[in-house]
């Protein structure tokens, strides 16, 4: 708006809707984050580090303190910038989002919510109310890594992954999502699937990283060519999966 690129006729300030802010951490396996929850609140909420380690690790990469003091989870998800961290993380975690309009409410899976660049499944008369995310299960590890030109800049490539191990130390489930790797957040289905049932070893990780590189479609920018983004996606996937695997093995 400050560049006069958008000039809305009507602007509604939802900041006074306090009931939309905060983390609802019930006893179940999932917790809910209100749309008006600010990054800063998440950073300070002990539930984040305990149950949402992926988000905890990503938060310091998101802009700078002054922005995190104002920026909200709902605003970020509804804006759906493909380079942004949160959409990729919500997608990776398999979260779902609650939309409400005068007509009623509905839940939208993250996989259906993010339609494209700056585009979501929200209808013009709908508003995002909250996002529901699964808590990190036992014997799991998560890792978020990104490469940006300066800390706080949009990622050139960001990788979010979670690994859950079975009783034999093999991968029960892996999930891999990327930011700035396509029109929207990208979920690397084949790469994730390739790890299921296997050990999280060097070769398996390298194989998954290769699959990630084939599953993404980065756009390139003045800061990084598509080739470099693809290269980085491979590098960071290997590093993040390795880390997530280590963390999973270390967790109870």
């Amino acid at each position: 708006m400050n560049f006069r690129l958008t000039q809305p006729a009507i602007l509604i300030d939802i900041n006074p809707l306090n009931e939309l802010a905060g983390v609802n951490n019930g006893a179940g396996e999932r917790l809910r984050v209100g749309a008006l929850t600010r990054y800063r609140n998440l950073e300070r909420d002990p539930a984040t580090a305990q149950h949402l380690p992926l988000i905890a690790e990503a938060l310091p990469h998101i802009a700078h303190p002054q922005i995190r003091n104002r920026g909200t989870i709902g605003g970020n998800l509804a804006h759906a910038d493909p380079a942004s961290e949160m959409p990729a993380i919500v997608l990776t975690l398999g979260g779902r989002l609650r939309a409400q309009s005068a007509k009623g409410e509905r839940w939208i899976d993250a996989a259906d919510f993010f339609v494209g660049a700056l585009t979501t499944a929200l209808e013009p008369d709908e508003m995002l109310m909250e996002v529901e995310l699964p808590k990190a299960p036992p014997r799991s590890g998560a890792c978020f890594m990104e490469m940006s030109r300066r800390r706080g800049d949009f990622a050139i490539i960001g990788v979010a992954c979670t690994v859950r191990l079975d009783d034999h130390g093999r991968c029960a489930e892996a999930r891999i999502g990327l930011c700035n790797a396509g029109d929207g957040p990208v979920f690397a289905t084949q790469a994730a699937r390739s790890l299921a049932g296997r050990a999280i070893g060097k070769n398996e990780i390298a194989e998954a990283a290769k699959l990630v590189q084939s599953e993404i479609d980065p756009g390139g920018s003045i800061h990084a060519s598509k080739e470099f983004q693809r290269h980085l996606a491979g590098v960071l996937t290997m590093r993040a999966l390795t880390k997530a695997g280590e963390r999973a093995r270390g967790s109870a």
Partner: peptide, 12 residues
């Protein structure tokens, strides 16, 4: 120089 340019010069 930049990471992207170093990638081009050394890898690509």
């Amino acid at each position: 120089l930049s990471p992207g340019r170093l990638f081009e010069l050394t890898v690509k």
